[in-house]
Design a protein around this nucleic acid. Structure first.
Lengths: 207, 207
DNA sequence: GTCTATACTGAGATAGAC
DNA sequence: GTCTATCTCAGTATAGAC
């Protein structure tokens, strides 16, 4: 019974681990299931038996690890808002970004995949399903920290931030500009400073 | 003779136009050549006859329109640096970003593709080939505008900026946060304000 | 319940007829 | 310069062995 469970989770887990890594490194569309099953050393049909389809496999990969990030984000936001107001923008940004840096310590391949999912634009349903809750909560906290910004202006700034964040998480420097081996806490520290100043920029006169 | 030339460029151009659009909308890896040839209403072998491979097709698509953007960026930077120093950061950012907004007016599909190329992480050679020159020039101008920043800090900020820019150019809002129909000049205006404040953030104490 | 063998369709790529 | 045929590998589906 325990052996059965172990064997089952063994195959499933090998597929999940390999898919997480390859989807993150190469992108979802650019990664073939046959690459995955070859690297995981399992049979072609195993993916469809355990997960159903390529898209469902991605969903399973994300489901496995997205929860803790969301929980950590929520907890940080809760603690932050329980303390004092006005809340500082950079603390809100940290509440959103530091959980990914912590996750990156033990699960760097998953963090890379998180970045990919935001930029590759594929599977919008999966992104929404797993990250919309904490994102909405984060936006609400930002609104309270930046009451002078209109909703549209704030949303655009969050949009810019997601681009910067995703590009940083994927760890793929364009044109060798940055050191690809820089650890994630350092990246996030720099990013928070950068975005903090950006969010505090005065709103436009007209809009 | 003229008819022959017209027919030739007709087929090539139909393929280039269609590939530019589909690569930009769906991503490079997610777009099959068979989608391209079906939408362009040409034969399967036409792509390989005219361009050689899928990657070479992408290169041809970029080659066709990247030049004017680079030229416009260079000219703006030249004019800017000929005027006065110290140069304002936001003017440097505009020199880099406004040419894409102008390009977007008549070639929105190409601008979307430019964004995709930066985030999808595929074809790093093609990105370098077409955009490294103006990027290096732009970084040099930024360094002069922000002499207090160390090289590494500046490079990371440029990295963040490229993420924000790419995500904005692709026009794919994550989780319906922003209005996807917002015109590019407006996006760029907001982005320049956002990034201007971000680049002017004080450098870290230790690094 | 789990895994394997096999087959079907559609992808990128190439060779050769016209 | 164009089209057909064909090759290999992709994602997917199913039947049946263990």
């Amino acid at each position: 019974m325990i052996d059965d469970l172990n064997r089952m989770t063994d195959t499933k887990q090998k597929i999940l681990d390999t898919a997480e890594r390859l989807f993150g490194e190469q992108g979802y569309a650019a990664t073939s299931l046959r690459q995955v099953i070859a690297a995981a050393e399992v049979n072609v049909a195993a993916v469809h038996y355990h997960f159903g389809s390529k898209e469902d496999l991605l969903d399973a990969v994300v489901t496995r690890k997205a929860g803790p990030v969301t929980v950590a984000r929520m907890e940080r936001l809760d603690r932050l808002e329980a303390e004092t107001k006005p809340v500082d923008v950079e603390r809100v940004l940290e509440a959103f970004l530091l959980p990914t840096a912590e996750m990156a310590e033990h699960h760097p391949t998953f963090v890379r995949l998180m970045g990919r999912m935001l930029t590759e634009g594929m599977m919008p349903r999966i992104v929404e399903k797993h990250f919309q809750e904490s994102a909405m909560r984060f936006i609400a906290a930002l609104m309270r920290a930046l009451p002078h910004l209109g909703r549209e202006e704030l949303m655009w700034r969050v949009h810019f931030m997601i681009g910067a964040m995703a590009h940083t998480l994927t760890g793929q420097p364009v044109m060798h500009m940055v050191d690809a081996s820089t650890d994630f806490p350092t990246r996030v520290r720099r990013l928070v400073k950068f975005l903090g100043a950006a969010f505090r920029a005065p709103a436009e006169e007209k809009n």
